[in-house]
Design a protein around this nucleic acid. Structure first.
Lengths: 311, 311
DNA sequence: CTGTTAGCGCATTCAC
DNA sequence: GTGAATGCGCTAACAG
């Protein structure tokens, strides 16, 4: 657009175009400029309060910055995640934000992204074998340290932990935080007091914890779970086997799912600053896309909430 | 691709391409074929169990049929919705699924879609002034008739209704269902027993019902709300003004939000078959895109659930 | 300062 | 049956 064309002319043309219903075809523009003004987002699930909040917040921020979100869902499956990334690269998104479920593909999806020189931000979950910077993660270690320490302060001693794959940063750091807090108070963590789920969803939590219960074990006093989904799985199993929370068993989660406010008793958990994280993630990604900034790693805060699920 | 090239050759080429990390650029293909294999979806919100379930189910079905979802959010705002539709047309999506918030633009977004000859399916909410076929809606009239009739059977007589704009099909049909059920039992519906909210979200419900409560009215025995969000707004106001549900006031919603299971007391509501509706919507839209079928209108069933929110 | 043209990556068409 | 040329809609570079 030339700056010396009269504004009235520009407006008139625009108005006529608008009246005629003309809408520029962005596919042509995309091909010509090699930019699409789109950001690919890969998450494990949609219909889940944690992820739907992230999707909504990133959508809002991206829209405000002139980018359209292309949403991809991995359904907690690594192969699907790889296919998602391929699709995004095929669609020539300008950058990728990924809450990655990968544990064992050794970063195949990541080398593809690198090869195509696409800016990428790891969000929340990041495979530990990927060393590259450019991430927004939560303060998993310290928050788990804190919630565990405060349980100990309340008098709990025999504490069980339910973790996920140690190849994922969040599982690794949360378990480390738990073990550190226990060690700090000179409490031991026997091998049989750490369970591991296959996937970080409720059904995996049910499967793992029910297997434990069926072995007729001595119950721990409280169970710290790697996230709320697993904790709610524990709730289900407790109900099935008639164990009272918090009297027979305390339960603690991480992540503050919406329904954790409404289950009976309300779940003690860690509330993360999802909005702040989402906004910063998009801002950083757009800065990378525009070449305005180098990759950085940021840790986002959260807050421990104790409620009826513990004594 | 020529059919007589040996399969082994094809596989070899594909393998090499894969190893090299080559991924075809779909932007070029889209321009060349004038197809994008994308479906635009416009919804009022993401972080909301009703919509996030719809988004997830449509995503799953669309992916299975080879289409990528382009998600747009209107945030219950008509102008945003119009901008969303323009963006989708600009991106040259192959078809559009819209849960429309429009009440007064007189179908400006719709004439644009028509002008661009894009297949469109109206989902759930549809502006009443648009007569074109191609919709998947829920059985608003009959389900509201049923829930109201069953309240009457339980002995309720003084029943209030909280509705939304009568220009939106769901509000119109649900209110009609309510009035029909009342009339069927020879119960009157005085003007002051029907409230109307501006928008179909919780905050509008709070605003409207609180204004009513502040006028120190004679309370109805039960309130039937156009949806669960409004009903949960009523819950909030009842809590604030120390009204006990269901003793002081019964409350009934529509749509079965996830948290309606967990609020105290659990909300009586109508559970809709969202998965069935979502799948059918995508199937129909893809059939329209492929020119395999003419537009149809389908009504999806649901189920009345009575719980602690009524006596 | 304005109008013309080449080219983005792919599919399809047309000669060969 | 193969390979080269054309064009999709737009932007950017270029020539006039």
């Amino acid at each position: 657009m030339h700056p010396d064309i009269a504004k009235s002319t520009v407006q008139k043309v625009k108005k006529v175009a608008d009246e005629l219903g003309y809408i520029p075809n962005s596919v042509g523009r995309n091909l010509s400029t090699n930019k699409t003004n789109t950001i690919g987002i890969v998450v494990p699930k949609i219909n889940h309060s944690f992820f739907s909040e992230i999707i909504e917040e990133t959508y809002i921020k991206a829209t405000a910055l002139g980018y359209q979100i292309i949403l991809m869902v991995s359904f907690e499956n690594e192969e699907v995640e790889l296919a998602n990334v391929k699709s995004l690269l095929s669609m020539n998104v300008d950058g990728i934000l990924i809450d990655s479920v990968s544990t064992s593909t050794e970063g195949k999806f990541f080398s593809l992204i690198s090869l195509h020189k696409k800016p990428v931000i790891f969000f929340d979950r990041k495979p530990r074998f990927i060393k590259k910077t450019g991430s927004i993660v939560f303060d998993d270690f310290n928050l788990t340290f804190e919630i565990t320490s405060r349980l100990i302060d309340k008098g709990y001693k025999d504490i069980m932990y339910i973790s996920g794959s140690q190849l994922i940063n969040i599982c690794y750091n949360r378990l480390r935080g738990f073990k550190s807090a226990m060690k700090y108070s000179n409490l031991s963590v026997p091998k049989n007091r750490v369970l591991t789920v296959d996937r970080l969803d409720k059904s995996s939590g049910i499967k793992t914890f029910e297997k434990f219960i069926r072995s007729k074990p001595k119950l721990p006093e409280v169970i710290v779970c790697v996230n709320d989904s697993i904790a709610l799985g524990v709730y289900d199993v407790c109900k099935k086997y008639d164990l009272k929370i918090p009297d027979d068993l305390g339960v603690v989660g991480f992540g503050h799912l919406k329904i954790s406010d409404f289950v009976q008793p309300p779940l003690s958990t860690v509330k993360l600053n999802l909005k702040k994280a989402s906004i910063l993630a998009i801002e950083n990604l757009v800065a990378l896309i525009k070449g305005k900034k180098k990759s950085t790693d940021t840790i986002i805060d959260g807050e421990v909430i104790f409620r009826g699920s513990i004594k």
